[in-house]
Amino acid sequence: MRLRSCPCSSPRWTTASRPRSPTSLVARIRSSDLGYLDGPGPLAPAFSAFADRRWGWKVDPARIHLATDVSVGIVETLRLALPDGGRVAITPPVYPPFFELVEEARAEIAEVPLLETWGTWSLDLPGLEAAFAAGAGVFLLCNPHNPVGLVHDRQTLEALADLAARYDVLVVSDEIHGPLTHPGVRFEPFAPIAEARGARSVVVTSASKGWNLAGVKCSIVVAGDDRTAELLDRLNDEVACRTSILGLHANVRALSCTDWLDDAIDKIVANDRLLSQLLTEHLPGVVYHRPRAGYLAWLDFRGIGLGDDPALPLREHAYVALNSGLGFGDQGRGFARLNLACSPDTLREAVTRIASAYPASMQGSLVWRVA
């Protein structure tokens, strides 16, 4: 048996723990409601209501558009914003498809790596200003940030919005992990902050991560201001048409299942604590950058000497399959990503296997550890 961390970053809960959207889908199938879409329909008010309840963000349903998934929403927005190509700023280590999506939109990447200080990650605001001043027309914001689980605070987002307004940069914010923010941490949607400070923004999101609906082919693209609303009104009709009607109804149903979402977060947080404990006891040379949102664990293996791509020897010698840090950019060298959305026994088995394969890592190291 091999333990796997899903490449698409999807939870691995049991069937019994999944949200009860199948009832909704069965009803649609029985009524032969399997046609094509031309707009968000009931999903727009459903998301607007959820965003208001959860975050106090009052979204105008008229600003909400459909896309097949978040990646498609990003690409189609880039194509509208940079029809003749241009530069797009990203902040590695970051979700690997960001690199590919910029290339798909025939744009150039401007890398502005996250700053890391004693295990604390943050946006490099001076670096972003330099990239904006050098001509980057769009910034892809990962909020919360995958893979480090960073939830950007309001002060940081306000400073970013001021920079975007000053240089007239469109910020496209991927907020798919926002619903999975951990207790005691406040998630701030970027769009209302940006609009209040005169910046342009787009938010792309879906219920797919928070409610274990990856692959149902439905996401939303939200214009954060009037200028961007005019831009998104030019989206090709096929962007909505290619979205799954069953995915739409699954998203509508999921957004009302906040009790299920809260239970899923509780399980993730419990696994976060468990993994921290297991690493402290059995792998003290591995530094765990604990997430403040989502179910992704960013692990620093540099202290036990597994090379630039620790996922490779871990797979070959410990029979544990993690996501390679290399896909997240050069800043991922020596790192690997683990999926916390699994059985606690899976985490125990994974750490046991790694500790058995690399017993020297149990002797302790003079490294700092994130609390």
Rank of each mutant, 00 (worst) to 15 (best):
G329A: 02
L115A: 03
S24E: 15
T68F: 08
F301Y: 08
Y319L: 14
L37W: 11
L34A: 14
A89L: 08
Q155V: 05
N339C: 12
L66F: 07
G303C: 01
S21G: 14
T205Y: 11
P93I: 07
V216E: 14
T23Y: 09
F99V: 08
P97N: 03
P113N: 06
V287Q: 11
E103N: 06
A223E: 02
T117Y: 03
S324I: 07
I304D: 00
E103L: 12
A194D: 00
L213A: 15
S219H: 02
S10H: 13
L366D: 12
S10K: 15
V204C: 04
D174Y: 08
H65C: 07
A165W: 01
V75M: 04
G39Y: 06
W260N: 15
V148W: 04
A194Q: 00
S219G: 13
W13C: 03
L180C: 10
L80M: 09
V203G: 01
V169H: 09
V169F: 09
L213I: 11
L115N: 03
G184W: 06
F132V: 03
E195D: 10
L246G: 02
V94T: 15
D162G: 11
D60H: 06
I74H: 00
F190P: 00
L312F: 11
L37D: 06
L283S: 04
G332T: 07
G224E: 00
F50Q: 05
A107G: 05
A254T: 12
R106I: 09
A264Q: 13
V94D: 00
L306R: 02
